[in-house]
Amino acid sequence: MASENNVLAETLQSDFEGILTGWLQAQAREGAKRTDLVSTRETEKQSRDLLTALARASRDAVLDDGFDFANPVWDQVRETLEEITESRTQRGVSPTEIGVFVTSMKRPIFERLRSKIGPELQGIEDMWNVSRVIDQLSLYAIESLVTKREAVIERQQSEMTEVSAPVVRIWDRIVTVPLIGTLDSFRAQTVMENLLSAIVQWEAEVAIIDITGVSTVDTLVAQHLLKTAAAVRLMGAQCVICGISPKIAQTIVNLGVELPNVTTRIDLQSGLEYAFKRIGVSVDGH
């Protein structure tokens, strides 16, 4: 099923190493080489892998009107591209830079095609220039699409954290935050931030952290709670941690974690009672 005149496969086969070298040079020239993020050796390996896959696939692939990148012939190429993209995105390489990394391959291949066709053909230089402009358009479009999507994700993420750590003013000078689910470092930070601003906003003297809904208390969570309590005190308020169930008390002690000088209570009710006493409010009944 190979096409009659598969120029791509032919060109790649005729001077594989030369094209690879030319491509690596083009990458550096067009600013796709991020030596700060990806090492030279890694770039070389990734470029060689991709070019090898391309050379192999193009031998059997249809390149004219029947070209279909979804065809299994291209599996290896797509896989290699995915691997490269994954490793580069993780290191903060931008979509445009990844795009340029690929499109800069055109230069050495075009050069060889041109010398084959012959310099007498006038239009080829113009075609090269136009295609480069269009490449840039498409890269820019992708870049801006990714940026906009990231902005949406970031906004949703911040809304989620906001919702998951609501600080409530339950009484004059008393604020509380009920914690639910897992408490990772990022959320712990948000909880602390929200709680401390609430103390300023309401001039709260007591801050109650209710951990009844926290699924597990490990060393890290205990550490976050200690930090929060310390920060609350620095602001001039008192921190009470309540919702210490027998199970959590056991876990904390078995972990060897201590909560020195932190006021703890079994449930929200006794936490509130403590808070009322601190601010000098007496509650009738009960």
Binding site: Q189, L196, S197, I199, K227, A231, L234, M235, G236
Partner: peptide
């Protein structure tokens, strides 16, 4: 010590 800002408290901790 009074009036410590939240950002300062978090940093000191």
């Amino acid at each position: 010590l009074v009036g410590m800002r939240p950002a300062v408290a978090m940093t000191l901790v």
